[in-house]
Amino acid sequence: MTEPSVGRRERKKAATRQAIADAALRLFLERGYDQVSIRDIADAADVSTTTVFKHFSGKEALVFDQDADRESELVAAVRQRAAGQSIVDALRQHALDTWLPVAAHPQRDAFTKLVDSTPVLRAYAEHMWTRHTDSLSAAIADEVGVGHDDLACAALARFVLEIPALTRSRQDHRAAVEAVFDILARGWEPPGRPPASAA
């Protein structure tokens, strides 16, 4: 049976996009963000600069090439969770499934250093996370039937999105993620204090 041309075309497009993003990250890590041009990236990926701009809005977007996917996956984790599963538990599972592989990636430290040391990338990342917070907060609010300006929904979204920053320096990433979600699910208790006994 012949493979549909649309499927082939989409896969080729995705492969080109990934090749451009991979070439960009390699050059950024080797030379530094400001020392790499769009022309350099196009040459390294063996495409034209026009092709680069067909896939990415600019240099910053090349660094955060999975931004749109991450945002839609966060929203889907809430909206498409299993029947009976709480929002916090769905987000816990999503964080474990997506953040732990990122935390273990061999380029994670170099990538973090690149972003932290480049003001334009730090600003882009902050804007990106603000947008993710708004989208996730809105999805949570829709699920519980409150307005998009609900503070509790915004706080939960923000805490969830801070988990990578909060846990990346911990030796046991899984335990750290679980600990943060335990606080979100059950509330904060002072460290070392035994749980209050039932009345």
Results as ranks from 00 to 15, higher is better:
A19T: 10
V78S: 00
Q80M: 10
R108P: 06
D65P: 06
A68M: 09
D97F: 04
Q85W: 09
A15G: 11
Q93G: 01
H105V: 07
A19K: 07
Q107F: 14
A77L: 05
K113I: 15
S48V: 10
A42W: 06
Q18M: 05
A21G: 06
V88A: 04
A104E: 11
E10G: 12
D34N: 14
A68K: 12
D65M: 11
V78Y: 00
H94R: 03
A110S: 14
R17I: 09
Q107W: 14
K12F: 15
T51C: 09
A23E: 01
T98K: 02
E71V: 04
K59T: 03
F28W: 02
V63G: 00
R31M: 11
L96W: 02
A95K: 00
L100V: 11
K54E: 15
D89F: 03
V63S: 00
R31V: 08
Q18L: 11
Q93D: 12
D46N: 15
V47A: 07
F56K: 00
I41R: 02
Q107P: 11
D40M: 06
A103D: 11
L29Y: 02
V63C: 01
I41E: 03
A77Y: 01
A76T: 12
A110E: 10
R11D: 09
S37G: 10
S86N: 08
K13C: 11
L62I: 05
G58N: 09
G58F: 02
R31Y: 12
I38Y: 03
D89E: 08
